[in-house]
Write a protein that binds this DNA or RNA. Structure first.
Length: 419
DNA sequence: TCTGGGGTCCTAGGACCC
DNA sequence: TCTGGGGTCCTAGGACCC
């Protein structure tokens, strides 16, 4: 029997946070809006009862909200981050193994608490509520996927008072029988449609499908999901937070943006924000991508989305260097005549600063090296990856590649680089 | 010059999650 | 005119290496 695992989830987290600081909002319908007050990203139970959908655009619902006296809040992520930290600290006191899964969810190993699961989770729930004012739901099961199911039932059925220990086979069956496919963790509408096409219509049918066979149809992810539904843990508890593999700074513009100057300002500030985040985590990057997008909701507009990657000659976390690179990437990707709605900077290939390998060029500020990077990009397009290997390799490899490429193509290297 | 297996690394895109 | 931001994992196919 697998160790019991709890998923603790804060109810309507952002809305609950707002309530903590304004108790008079209790019992009122509340929604919290995204950046730019664009759409709904959190709803209190009362707002859900009114039929307010997740992601509902504010501008289409203003009148409805006014009519039903829905209280509307702009989001305050600093506040939510702080409240999240408090909740997680309390949870850490109830288990030796805690995985913080998101701002409002955590998985807890309850190994060793088997004989008093009900009492332990009741204490946990009461303590979080008393010390922070945030109500949570607790689902206990043998695997993460089943804990998600249990949590959902804890939340939806008032009789359970926010807690569902779903370890008995009959309870698992009952739990799964009450769900639709898309209620499962990892099934959204595309996967649901493909499952239906295979005549798999319910979570129970999915659980009883052959995992190997389903892997052929989907991928290893589906195989794992089925095993997890059967109570075999395939997704482990991550008790240490792994380093980020990518960092994104992006924003939708409140209105369409046309000019390159405005875009340059935006992209420069995203690059600076991303670099700051990265330094805070003691990471450096080798690889930066800039993307721009038009507004997909405006069907009448010509659509355009494009991205441009730049491989840095040396790993860096320097705002100036990253901004420089981002602006160069923007120039490559920016076209006039579009109504831009969103842009962003992504940093990839992150690794610990102390492990950063010196790159091919020692002095990144040397204008010649930037010019050469441009040339490398052009070569990449022309000759494919050989040049990437050259640009990422050591001086010696670089020299070798240079020879190879030069001999393969009649143009001289200096001519190609044009510097 | 041809043949070829096994492995790695890249990009692009899809799908999902909170 | 107004529809979020930040992530992860997987696959397929191309190109390259030994």
């Amino acid at each position: 029997m697998a160790d019991p695992l709890a998923l603790v989830d804060c109810n309507n987290f952002y809305a609950s946070c707002e309530r903590v600081f304004q108790p008079k909002l209790r019992g009122q319908p509340i929604v919290v809006l995204s950046n730019n007050d664009g759409c709904v990203i959190a709803r209190s139970n009362e707002a859900k009862a009114l039929g307010v959908e997740m992601g509902a655009p504010w501008h289409l619902n203003k009148e409805f909200f006014a009519k039903h006296r829905v209280i509307v809040r702009s989001s305050n992520y600093t506040l939510y981050g702080d409240m999240s930290g408090r909740v997680m600290n309390i949870l850490a006191g109830f288990t030796p193994d805690l995985e913080i899964y998101s701002i409002d969810e955590a998985f807890l190993s309850l190994a060793g608490f088997e004989t008093r699961l009900e009492r332990h989770t009741r204490d946990l729930r009461a303590t979080v509520l008393q010390w922070t004012g945030i109500p949570v739901s607790v689902g206990v099961a043998a695997t993460k996927t089943l804990a998600k199911v249990a949590n959902r039932f804890a939340k939806k059925s008032p009789a359970r008072a926010g807690i569902f220990v779903m370890l008995e086979p009959d309870d698992v069956d009952t739990g799964l029988a009450g769900l639709q496919l898309r209620d499962l963790w990892g099934v959204a509408h595309r996967t649901e449609a493909r499952l239906l096409a295979l005549n798999i219509r319910t979570p129970l049918q999915l659980r009883d499908a052959d995992p190997r066979h389903m892997r052929q149809h989907f991928s290893v992810v589906m195989e794992r999901m089925i095993l997890e539904l059967r109570g075999t843990p395939c997704i482990g508890l991550e008790d240490t937070t792994p380093d980020k593999k990518s960092i994104i700074a992006s924003r939708s513009f409140g209105r369409a943006v046309f000019g390159i100057e405005e875009m340059r300002e935006a992209v420069a500030s995203y690059a600076a924000r991303a670099a700051e985040k990265m330094r805070r985590q003691n990471l450096v990057t080798n690889h930066l991508t800039v993307f721009v997008e038009t507004n997909p909701f405006r069907q009448q507009d010509q659509q355009y989305h494009a991205s441009r990657s730049i491989r840095l000659p040396a790993a860096s976390a320097d705002t100036g260097k990253l901004t420089h690179a981002a602006l160069r990437a923007l120039e490559a990707v920016y076209k006039c005549d579009y109504r831009y709605k969103k842009a962003g900077v992504m940093l990839l290939d992150l690794h610990k600063a102390e492990k950063a390998q010196p790159g091919l060029f020692d002095n990144v500020d040397d204008p010649a090296s930037w010019a050469r990077m441009s040339a490398i990009d052009a070569l990449n397009k022309k000759f494919g990856q050989a040049v990437w290997y050259a640009s990422a390799g050591t001086r010696k490899q670089w020299a070798m590649k240079r020879e190879q490429i030069s001999s393969r193509y009649t143009t001289s290297w200096d001519e190609l680089l044009n510097v």
